[in-house]
Simulated assay, not measured.
Amino acid sequence: MELRQLECFVAVAEESSFTRAAARLHVVQSAVSATIATLEGELHTRLLERTSRRVSLSAAGRALLPKARAALDAVRDARDAVDEVNGVVRGTLRVGTLSSLGVLDLPALLGRFHREHPAVSVRLVTAASDGGSPGLLDALAEGRLDLAFVSIPGSPPPGAQWRNLTATPLDLVVPAGHRLAGRSRVALGELADEAFIDFPSGYGNRAVTDRAFTRAGLRRHVTIEITAIGAGADFVRHGMGIALLPRGSTGHDTDLVSLPVTGADLNWPISLATPSSRAPSAAARAFERLVEQHLR
């Protein structure tokens, strides 16, 4: 087996598509197909099941995938060792992120990282395209990401470890004419009968809110699901419901009122997750150091 064959196989397995794998590898699709066919011929087995709609792994392909990733990781580590002697960081950094990171300025972080390490190519995957924080953690454990910004209350699941970076309180946001708008604070129990605008299940702030209501023994009715904080504020402004949004996210909007909520833990955590089963690349280590500097 050649490294290029393993790279093609892993790309097709992760993308579930020869077309997307070819785009990712910057080659024509026919080259990917030919490389996979050669690899299957050398191994005397079919690695991929092809249909008109998608590509999936065969039993042999599922057995090969973790070994192929481990082989590519070993080659990456060898290159990193040589580059480190020469004072260079290169390669590809695959970062998963949420749609909002609170006080963390991801574009500024990535811009600084690019200036300090121009030989590193950065690939960014958003939670919206990968199933929220749980999807990002799955991608991390499977080797599709090097690190990820996630928001999940509690402890890390198997296969991941994380460092807590920030925690932002979620405030109640209501329209200026709402029955609670004149209050200085509100208790969680007063919100049981309200229509809520919230993120889909799997998003960190939704998990924080659901946990708070469950612990209080309260039911909650979510009428509209959104994937951006700004959209939540817009729906609240037009009377479609109320929302629990990160403190300060509505700015000085006179159409909206933000209130702290008492009687519940509504802190929205942001963590930087890394895989616990494999060593990080030199690029991933450099990015972690940059995040630490940013927080200081």
Rank of each mutant, 00 (worst) to 15 (best):
6 L>Q: 06
8 C>S: 15
9 F>H: 05
10 V>F: 04
10 V>L: 08
11 A>H: 04
11 A>G: 02
11 A>M: 06
13 A>Y: 07
13 A>D: 08
13 A>K: 06
14 E>C: 00
14 E>M: 05
15 E>M: 15
18 F>N: 05
18 F>V: 01
22 A>R: 06
22 A>W: 07
23 A>P: 01
25 L>T: 09
25 L>N: 09
27 V>M: 14
29 Q>T: 13
31 A>Y: 15
39 L>Y: 03
44 H>T: 10
50 R>F: 02
53 R>F: 08
54 R>S: 14
56 S>Y: 03
61 G>R: 03
62 R>N: 03
63 A>I: 01
65 L>R: 11
67 K>P: 01
68 A>H: 09
70 A>F: 03
74 A>M: 06
74 A>F: 03
76 R>I: 10
77 D>T: 08
80 D>S: 06
81 A>H: 10
82 V>K: 12
84 E>Y: 00
96 G>T: 06
99 S>H: 07
100 S>V: 02
102 G>H: 08
103 V>L: 00
106 L>N: 02
108 A>R: 14
108 A>D: 09
108 A>E: 14
109 L>M: 13
109 L>C: 02
110 L>C: 08
111 G>E: 09
112 R>S: 14
115 R>E: 15
115 R>I: 02
121 S>D: 14
124 L>Y: 10
125 V>Y: 15
126 T>A: 11
127 A>G: 14
130 D>C: 10
132 G>T: 10
137 L>N: 03
139 A>M: 15
141 A>K: 12
141 A>H: 04
143 G>M: 13
145 L>Q: 07
146 D>G: 15
151 S>N: 04
153 P>E: 03
154 G>M: 09
154 G>C: 05
157 P>M: 02
158 P>E: 08
160 A>L: 01
161 Q>V: 15
163 R>E: 15
163 R>H: 11
164 N>R: 13
169 P>G: 11
170 L>W: 07
177 G>R: 13
181 A>R: 12
181 A>F: 11
182 G>P: 13
182 G>E: 12
183 R>I: 05
186 V>K: 09
188 L>A: 08
190 E>C: 07
193 D>C: 00
194 E>I: 08
197 I>G: 11
202 G>V: 04
203 Y>P: 00
207 A>S: 14
208 V>F: 11
210 D>K: 10
213 F>M: 15
214 T>L: 11
214 T>A: 14
215 R>I: 02
216 A>S: 08
217 G>E: 07
218 L>Y: 04
228 A>N: 09
228 A>G: 04
229 I>W: 06
231 A>F: 02
233 A>R: 04
235 F>I: 02
235 F>C: 01
236 V>I: 09
239 G>D: 13
239 G>M: 12
241 G>M: 04
243 A>L: 07
243 A>M: 06
246 P>V: 05
247 R>F: 00
249 S>L: 12
252 H>S: 11
252 H>I: 03
253 D>N: 14
256 L>R: 01
256 L>C: 07
257 V>K: 08
261 V>N: 10
261 V>H: 14
262 T>I: 05
263 G>N: 12
264 A>N: 10
264 A>C: 10
265 D>A: 14
268 W>E: 00
269 P>Q: 03
269 P>G: 00
270 I>R: 00
275 P>M: 08
279 A>W: 01
283 A>D: 03
284 A>V: 07
286 A>D: 00
287 F>R: 04
287 F>C: 00
290 L>M: 13
293 Q>I: 11
294 H>I: 00
295 L>W: 04
296 R>T: 13
